[in-house]
Computed example of a mutant assay.
Amino acid sequence: MSRSGPDAVVMIVDDVPANLAMLHDALEQGGYTVRVATSGERALESAKLEPPDLILLDALMPGLDGFETCLRLKRELGTRHIPVVFMTGLTDTDHVVRGFQCGGVDYVTKPIRPQEVLARIAAHLANARQMAESQQAADAAGDAIVAIDEERRVRWATPLARRWLKDILDADERLPIALRQWVGKDQETSCVWPTRERRLVFSRLGSARGGDQRLLIQSQAHVPEPEALVRALKLTQREAEVLHWVALGKTNVEVGGVLDMSPRTVNKHLEHIFQKLNVETRTAATTVAINKGRAGTSPADA
């Protein structure tokens, strides 16, 4: 869990000794444990070995500059959660925007004003602690929740979510393209992604601190194909097609659009399905389709 107050560890990354000394003294007087790095490369090595609670990062350094250093921190699962506050003598808007695009949470301009830096650090450490506590609560509840950044890259995930996502994320831990596109479509409340073992249903939980988008993932058993439903439940081909799409969560209007029939005709088919399955609701029919429909699946269909 991220620490705040006297237990917090702050790393200062700057290639100018005078800046390091001044900030080191100010932070120690503020009650923080301080670590220093004089280059982006050393900062990355140190952060991976033992992640600090916050990083004060000089934007312009020889070699690996602060922007690239921040990008690399955010690509690593073990360090992407660390709040990064940029230090820069540049007030140009493009450089400020670039810092945020790299994953920074804030920036301070040089010459550094220690009291301002201390206030900003305290605020961001408090935010990070609240986020960590929220994540721990989700872990304890056993929920499958994932937070993604603007590039649709996983920032953090509960253990269950990470297990379900491990086979569908790309090398940069980004969601598949279709899921990335869905995240940007506010009008679509959920998205289904089939895997070898289950159907993953993604829905939005809102934005987390720092602008990350939180998603809830729910697992659903695979719905048998219509042919399997015909064999197992003695339905007509058309009834089996309607039940298949109903079991996938489609409304009568949506099923009608898929099967090129009116919603009223869909409803008539559902009435016949309910009678044959001896059920009264769509949920009950879906349960029968999933449980008994598998019996009609041949080894070649599996």
Score class of each variant (00 low, 15 high):
168 I>T: 07
173 E>D: 15
185 K>T: 08
180 R>V: 03
193 W>N: 08
203 S>M: 05
197 E>M: 12
182 W>Q: 03
160 L>K: 11
192 V>T: 13
179 L>T: 09
194 P>W: 05
173 E>R: 02
187 Q>D: 15
194 P>G: 12
186 D>Y: 09
200 L>N: 03
160 L>P: 06
186 D>N: 13
196 R>H: 10
182 W>Y: 04
180 R>G: 14
197 E>P: 02
185 K>I: 08
174 R>C: 15
185 K>P: 00
184 G>F: 04
169 L>G: 09
199 R>S: 09
168 I>D: 03
166 K>W: 08
176 P>E: 12
180 R>I: 01
199 R>V: 02
192 V>E: 06
178 A>G: 07
200 L>M: 15
181 Q>F: 06
203 S>Y: 02
199 R>I: 00
180 R>F: 00
195 T>E: 11
184 G>I: 00
158 T>D: 04
191 C>H: 15
201 V>K: 11
167 D>V: 03
192 V>M: 09
187 Q>W: 14
192 V>D: 04
188 E>D: 14
203 S>C: 02
166 K>Q: 14
196 R>E: 14
170 D>R: 07
186 D>C: 05
193 W>I: 13
180 R>E: 12
190 S>T: 14
200 L>D: 04
175 L>E: 10
201 V>M: 03
197 E>Q: 14
176 P>M: 06
186 D>L: 08
199 R>F: 01
163 R>Y: 13
164 W>R: 05
173 E>W: 08
200 L>K: 07
177 I>M: 08
183 V>P: 02
170 D>H: 02
180 R>C: 12
178 A>C: 02
173 E>Y: 06
191 C>L: 10
193 W>T: 10
181 Q>A: 08
202 F>N: 01
179 L>N: 01
170 D>T: 09
161 A>H: 03
